[in-house]
């Protein structure tokens, strides 16, 4: 079973809460992190989330977008969303300034299985904006560093300018995360690794594969090959987790858009166990 939302489902799941943009941090081109605060203090006190969950950000008159939460779940009162401009809602969000208000419904969806991670090694395999939904998991694992074995982050992007949170890597390293970074295409200035992310997994030593948990988020093809690599290295399929993306409209399993075979990505996912979704991942148009 996936971890479920720590919050009781909203009495009215359609009611958005008003949030205000506390600050905006530009990350990379077309990507910014929005720190949000609830206007209603009671909601702010009540709100908590699990790593991997998402909120529906609602810009009245424009629509809603499902955006994963990117901040540390233990840091109460801090609610960050790292958003890439990809459509109408995210485009409009990018035009807002600190102080602007809009709506938020959430948190929704399943979470990264942190309780199953602790006690063993963890390898996070991710690419591009896929690091955003894993950042809370990185924080949570670092919060529980003493309970974990080896912690490794394998992260890739198309080019160096597509790498997120690079100014945080040193902090994560100091606190106990091995961070390996790669890009598909190098630049003259890039002295780091060139190649795809699954290759980093192929070559990394896995001392206790059967006690290793792999958390993946990125393009489905990348996750598929990362999982193949992990399986080939002896990681059990039930210890590999992926975060999937589908069109999300309601976020509460009532609108039908995000179905992926038996799963509603919004409420059964987005974080799902690899062996439960693997058979459908390479079926075209499903």
């Amino acid at each position: 079973m996936n971890p479920v939302s720590p919050c009781l489902p909203n009495a009215d799941p359609w009611l958005a809460h008003t949030v205000r943009i506390a600050s905006i941090t530009d990350e990379i081109q077309d990507v910014a992190t929005y720190r949000l605060e609830f206007v209603d203090a009671a909601i702010a006190d009540e709100f908590s989330f699990l790593p991997g969950q998402f909120n529906m950000l609602y810009l009245p008159g424009v629509g809603e977008a499902a955006i994963s939460i990117s901040s540390d779940p233990q840091q109460r009162g801090v609610l960050d969303h790292t958003v890439r401009v990809a459509g109408n809602v995210t485009g409009e969000l990018a035009r807002l300034n600190a102080g602007a208000t809009f709506g938020l419904r959430g948190p929704f969806g399943s979470a990264w299985p942190i309780d199953e991670c602790v006690g063993g090694d963890v390898v996070i395999v991710t690419g591009g904006i896929g690091l955003a939904p894993l950042r809370p998991a990185i924080h949570e694992l670092l919060n529980r560093r003493d309970e974990c074995g080896q912690l490794t982050l394998l992260y890739g992007a198309r080019e160096p300018s597509g790498l997120l949170y690079t100014n945080e890597f040193d902090d994560w390293r100091q606190r106990g995360f091995d961070v390996a970074v790669t890009v598909d295409r190098g630049t003259d200035a890039w002295k780091g690794n060139v190649g795809v992310v699954p290759q980093l997994l192929d070559r990394m030593p896995l001392e206790n594969p059967e006690q290793t948990t792999v958390l993946c988020c990125g393009p489905e093809v990348m996750m598929w090959f990362a999982a193949r690599s992990a399986l080939g290295r002896g990681v059990p399929a039930e210890r590999i987790w992926v975060s999937l993306e589908r069109n999300m409209n309601c976020a509460i399993g009532l609108c039908g858009h995000c179905q992926f075979g038996p799963s509603f990505i919004c409420k059964d996912g987005p974080v799902l166990r690899y062996d439960q979704v693997a058979p459908l991942l390479r079926v075209e148009g499903f």
């Binding site: 008159g61 424009v62 309601c250 009532l254 609108c255 039908g256």
Partner: peptide, 10 residues
């Protein structure tokens, strides 16, 4: 069949 979509009417 229960599929639906939500639209903004302003």
């Amino acid at each position: 069949c229960f599929c639906s979509s939500v639209e903004e009417v302003s």
